[in-house]
């Protein structure tokens, strides 16, 4: 299963970078979305994939069963998703405003500040 996840994550990173290298600012934001999803999957996979073993403490026990899933990694991903959502909402508004001001969906037109 880890192998499959590794390929999925690698593909997501590659796709994200490819999209970000395009000139269109809309594709740039799509690239950022893919990138944040790839990072979340890395956390998910790196913490260990466990199937059908929720981290529950059964009555009379003090600890959950030894091979149960790691809830912390999922809390991290949840936090990262929320933050990523907020930031991406900002990025979408930003490219919309930039499109209005510059009048083009093209990074090559946006070099006033570079010279």
């Amino acid at each position: 299963m880890e192998i499959v996840m590794a390929f999925v994550i690698g593909f997501l990173y590659a796709a994200a970078l490819y999209m970000m290298l395009r000139r269109s600012i809309v594709k740039l934001v799509i690239g950022l979305v893919l990138l944040s999803n790839a990072a979340n999957l890395v956390i998910f996979t790196a913490a260990g994939l466990v199937r059908g073993a929720p981290p529950l403490i059964y009555p009379g026990e003090l600890l959950p069963p030894s091979a149960s899933a790691d809830p912390l990694a999922q809390a991290l991903i949840l936090t990262a998703i929320v933050i990523g959502f907020g930031v991406l909402a900002f990025a979408v508004v930003l490219i919309h405003r930039a499109y209005e001001v510059v009048g083009a969906d093209d990074m090559d037109q946006m070099k006033d500040t570079d010279t």
Binding site: I25, L28, L94, I95, R97, A98, V101, V102, M107, M110, K111, D112, T113
Partner: peptide, 8 residues
Amino acid sequence: RAQMEGAI
């Protein structure tokens, strides 16, 4: 305009 371009 410059702010938008810089911000991206």
